[in-house]
Write a protein that binds this DNA or RNA. Structure first.
Length: 284
DNA sequence: CCGGCCACCTGCGGGC
DNA sequence: TGCCCGCAGGTGGCCG
């Protein structure tokens, strides 16, 4: 579920349901997720309070009220589902927030890698979870290409030999580029994922940044449905099935050149690339 | 200070 | 059927 496009879509949808509404009931069914949920603090922020804003930093969802902010991260398997109070409770529902009209937001997370925490309004940028986060790729005031180029060169001084794929997935450099969109944007930019980040030219970073912004934007516009088991109400597969060019397509033909997509492992995570379009030495 | 690796969990699909 | 293995969208923290 959670790559940046899913989180962004969720935040947009949540604004419609939450803004100006009040949490009447806040329930927890288990609090031992990634870190224990600070139930008392979370209730202080939410219970009986009206939502002033719903924002996002990286893949963190932030719900603002007059008494503070609750941060929610979905981890690998988390969902934040809006439904009627009458709906049967899904397995692994750990928290239920009931709004004034009986609408509920439910936090469901089988693997429990997600987090729920509270912070004060003035803590957002200094909180450990946010302090070292890199730039927002879709922030129009940021030159993503220049940032990536400069950061990749900074690391060069400390004999870094990090690959471009792992560099893109480093949230202290840029947030929101997860395992799917790292592979996808490198394929679009025709850059081999095993190349050293420090060896790419400024020109290549310009091209790569363009692809990152485009692929994330397209996925957001498609409603953030880039997960494996997504089906819409008619049972049709979402963006994931239709539009991902390489992710999860090992041994299938490249959508540009028909060569067979290859799966490799970098930092313990699967990487997909086309050995022809993204040939290792291509300076493109 | 930095890069690399692990841990944290449950579920699912494939092979035997 | 059923068991076992590998794999799954993330990331903070620890170790060397």
């Amino acid at each position: 579920l959670p790559e940046l496009p899913e989180v962004e879509s969720l935040v947009c949808g949540a604004r419609g349901n939450l803004l100006g509404h009040r949490f009447e009931v806040v329930e927890f069914y288990r609090s031992d997720i990634r870190e224990p949920i600070p139930i008392k603090q979370v209730k202080t922020v939410l219970l009986g309070q009206t939502v002033n804003a719903v924002t996002r930093r990286g893949k963190y969802i932030l719900v603002h009220t007059a008494t503070g902010i609750v941060g929610i991260h979905l981890g690998m398997s988390g969902r934040f589902i809006c439904c009627d109070a009458a709906q049967p409770m899904a397995k692994h529902t750990h928290a239920v927030l009931t709004l004034d009209q009986g609408i509920q937001y439910r936090f469901v997370d089988p693997r429990r890698f997600g987090r729920i925490f509270a912070l004060r309004a003035d803590e957002i940028e200094s909180h450990p979870f946010f302090a070292r986060l890199g730039v927002e790729p879709l922030d129009p005031s940021v030159s993503l290409s220049e940032h990536l180029f400069v950061m990749s060169h900074k690391k060069l001084r400390s004999k870094s030999s990090r690959t471009i794929k792992q560099f893109l997935m480093d949230s202290s450099i840029v947030v929101g580029v997860g395992n799917i969109y790292a592979s996808e944007s490198l394929w679009r930019a025709k850059i081999n994922p095993a190349r050293k980040a420090s060896q790419l030219t400024r020109h290549q970073y310009v091209h790569l940044a363009r692809q990152i912004i485009d692929v994330l934007t397209e996925a957001i516009n498609a409603g953030g449905t880039s997960f494996r088991d997504y089906r819409d109400i008619d049972g049709k597969p979402g963006y994931f099935q239709q539009s991902l060019a390489v992710y999860g397509r090992e041994t299938k033909p490249c959508k540009r050149c028909t060569a067979l997509i290859r799966r490799t492992v970098q930092g313990g995570r699967s990487t997909y690339h086309c050995p022809v379009c993204q040939s290792a030495k291509s300076a493109d």
